[in-house]
Design a protein around this nucleic acid. Structure first.
Lengths: 310, 310
DNA sequence: CACTTTGCATGCCGATAGGTTATGAAGGTG
DNA sequence: CACCTTCATAACCTATCGGCATGCAAAGTG
């Protein structure tokens, strides 16, 4: 385990040309240098690999044995070089991305389209889950990047970059009378209304409670539990009202959305990564692609209703 | 093409243990040395392969890409080492042997049996042919060793080692009267007899003519041409007499063999190899085995009739 | 047959890589 | 807060490598 690539390279060059001087030229070194390379190779192997009978270079038995191995080894070196260069140029690699279900459709999908155009060699694995689960998997090293909701505790060793503030609206059933006749309402106006609360573990549950408490009351739960789209369905069925992200409320059928009076309420969409580990090239390129995408959206005024860049 | 095996070794050790100090111990070097190996590897690759966030060593994307290649390369190194060691110990290898047909049975066969017992890993390729053809193939590098008949011209760059002198006898048909009633005859006694001469290209033809001329006459040919066993058949049929090696005359049916009076005549069996190229280990071991075999034959008095060690 | 040419090996020197010891910085621990 | 662990860095030494000049042996040449 001391045979250097240059020694194998020298051996292969001589084995091919059967000529020291010529092989040295091909390698761009002087002939004595190449002689020494071969010499050191042979002393390390403990046997001659070439016969230098004047004017006739031949491989010894050991040389023949070495030849195939030397070819394989140098080929493996070159393959390694090529693969690494691909990774460095983000022509290859792996991106393990996490996102909450509510972000996958409108934000993630176009982002991935854009990303794959510029980096087609990267294989992308997308994991959906709640913010807590995502940050755990991030910290465990199962993910490279994750889109999270809310201000993730930075103490877990994560670097969190806020991206967007998405307005929360008060959702109610479309076939019931509006909660207000104004174009927005104060939360205090709905303090007596029964709420449909998302299940434990959903970011939106904590956000709803925290927002209401900031407005001076604790929301009464008509129904407690359910995923985000279940909450939307229950509200549409008239079982209660709920605070929902503007994008979700706009998409769900049978809902009426009432903006909250200034300063309003919002949830924060952020990009998280491990703080102690540098990003992979693929992840770094994705983050760059994301920045560019958001900048484009902002510049062209294409940010969805209720969305604000940070 | 500058990545040294030691660097890959260091990388693999750290990748396995996730621990510099421990990996350094496993490799039997100090920790700073291993750090420098990794450092130089990374600077040559142009990218980090490990993340050293205090107390947590991880592979980077480049590191993951390198890992498989590094394993393959080091495995290839070890395989090369093992193969070469096999060749050096003559546990593996190739032996390309040439011999004249007349030698294959009684000399070559037991030799190969003995050789394969001690060196079962060596693959032996046996080529039969005339001395001229064998020496040509030897000089061309198609053979490692060849058993030849007669004094092969040493000018062709061959090293020839005489092994045995095989007596020539005068062969005649068994159903004809003996050429002499003595237990041996002088060649001059058969100067008027018609000879069966082997074809051009056979060593025996030149040997016959030279031997007769040394006795003062040129043999008259009754039949001119044919392989050695054809000559034996023709002589047995009574078409003429011939000079034949003692071993062949003894084996062929229907022949009467008359020894030649002292100093007699003989052909030389020799072992030839290229002079400018060292023997392969397999060939060297075969030559040693041959010497031992001949020594044994001589010591035990088992040399065939008419055979004399040189 | 002397002379030149060819082709690889060798000796010497400067640069560099690799090793060891000692030391420093950073994070965890009693 | 002193101390330990762990990796990086510095200083130093040696081995090695590459280049230049040269040597030596064999083959070609006049």
């Amino acid at each position: 385990m001391k045979v250097r690539p240059q020694q194998l390279q020298a051996f292969l060059a001589v084995a091919e040309t059967r000529h020291f001087t010529q092989a040295a030229e091909n390698l761009g070194v002087t002939q004595p240098s190449l002689s020494k390379r071969i010499g050191s190779l042979e002393s390390e192997l403990g046997a001659a690999v070439l016969t230098r009978s004047r004017g006739r270079i031949e491989l010894t038995d050991v040389g023949h044995t070495l030849l195939g191995h030397a070819r394989r080894i140098t080929a493996a070196h070159e393959a390694a070089r090529a693969d690494i260069d691909d990774v460095l140029a983000v022509r290859a690699g792996r991106l393990r991305l996490g996102a909450t279900p509510s972000l996958c459709s409108w934000l993630i999908a176009p982002l991935l389209v854009r990303y794959r155009e510029t980096h087609p060699g990267v294989t992308v694995a997308l994991t959906e889950g709640g913010s807590v689960q995502l940050t755990e998997r991030l910290a465990a090293g199962d993910l490279d990047l994750a889109f999270t909701i809310g201000d993730v505790a930075a103490e877990t060793g994560l670097a969190v970059r806020p991206l967007l503030a998405e307005a929360l609206v008060v959702a109610s059933a479309a076939d019931l009378p509006p909660l207000t006749d104004r174009d927005h309402l104060h939360l205090a106006q709905v303090r007596e209304q029964p709420f449909v609360l998302p299940a434990h573990g959903y970011d939106l549950r904590h956000l709803t409670i925290a927002t209401c408490e900031a407005a001076g009351f604790t929301p009464a739960s008509a129904v407690d539990g359910g995923a985000t789209d279940a909450v939307a369905s229950l509200v549409a069925a008239g079982l209660g009202i709920a605070l929902l992200p503007a994008m979700i409320a706009a998409d769900a059928p049978g809902l009426r959305a009432a903006p909250i009076a200034p300063p309003g309420a919002s949830r924060t969409i952020a990009l998280a990564a491990r703080a102690d580990t540098p990003l992979t090239r693929a992840a770094d390129a994705f983050a760059a692609s994301l920045e560019a995408h958001l900048t484009d959206l902002h510049a062209w005024g294409r940010l969805p209703e209720g969305m604000r860049a940070l």
